[in-house]
């Protein structure tokens, strides 16, 4: 057995006196696609943010490839440079895209390649072209984000993250800011990445997509992992889990 790529043990996080994550344990293996579902406010975003240390955590450990993410072994916060290096190993796609508005689509993808991966401009441009092509936006390389639709912006967001060749890709409700007719094109890209073996941890409200595209679903409630398992089994077990049942019931009404 290989060690899992991502190992989270007893992760704890509070905002002031609100406990947002209460002892989370989670493993994600290489090439695995894990979906995180759960009601709003259950701590899904905070969990993802802890994994690439956009958020500090109060206890427990988050390891990628065996290395603690934000802290040294003595639990001191890592220096700026070491943190940046570790963050480059995890890709993140945001709900609100967060593209750099002053840069073209290609430049958005190139920035990390030149500054962090130390590629030349020409190499970076070629890699950006490749990934923009992969997300179906080869013809929009010179467009500014303001000239793109939401679905196109989010696909640039994905290209920007995967071009860095991260070990794991974190996706936070990447379709929930999109008009319904634009959701499909973005999910299609994610499906393609999954098929190629990209390791992904994705928070999503698209239950049908989670069921079809992931190998495991994690259900979060009140800062804990309340249920977890392969999609079909988890959904079948909902009868025995009132919180999961009522959460899924709302989606059954609209999505199934």
């Amino acid at each position: 057995m290989h060690e899992p790529l991502l190992t989270i043990r007893d992760l704890k996080k509070s905002f002031g006196r609100t406990e947002v994550l209460k002892s989370i344990d989670l493993d994600v293996g290489r090439g695995e696609v894990v979906a995180v579902i759960g009601p709003s406010g259950s701590g899904k975003t905070t969990l993802l943010r802890c994994i690439n240390f956009l958020e500090t955590y109060d206890g427990g450990s988050v390891r990628i490839d065996g290395a603690e993410v934000g802290y040294t072994e003595g639990r001191k916060r890592r220096g700026e440079r070491a943190l940046a290096r570790m963050r480059a190993e995890t890709g993140m796609v945001f709900q609100s895209f967060n593209l750099f508005p002053h840069l073209t689509a290609a430049q958005n993808v190139m920035l990390g390649l030149t500054k962090v991966r130390r590629k030349t401009k020409a190499e970076a441009r070629e890699i950006a072209g490749h990934w923009l092509g992969r997300v179906g936006l080869g013809h929009k390389a010179e467009a500014l984000p303001s000239e793109l639709s939401g679905g196109q912006q989010q696909r640039v967001g994905i290209a920007r993250a995967v071009a860095m060749e991260p070990k794991i890709l974190l996706l936070d409700e990447i379709t929930s800011a999109l008009d319904p007719e634009l959701v499909g094109e973005v999910l299609e890209v994610v499906r393609g990445l999954a098929a190629e073996g990209m390791t992904m941890l994705m928070v999503t409200h698209e239950i049908a997509f989670a069921r079809d595209a992931s190998s495991r679903i994690v259900f979060m409630a009140d800062g804990t992992i309340a249920a977890e398992g392969p999609p079909v089994e988890l959904i079948a077990s909902a009868e025995a889990n009132p919180r999961l049942f009522s959460f899924l019931a709302r989606f059954r009404a609209s999505h199934f």
Binding site: R87, T90, F94, N98, F100
Partner: peptide, 27 residues
């Protein structure tokens, strides 16, 4: 400049000074 800009810079591994010069200051 919205906070998400700085976070997007962090997420691709930019250091503090790189975020300032490439992301925050130009905007």
């Amino acid at each position: 400049i919205p906070r998400g800009q700085s976070e997007a810079g962090m997420a691709i591994g930019l250091t503090f000074s790189e975020r300032l010069t490439s992301v925050i200051f130009p905007q």
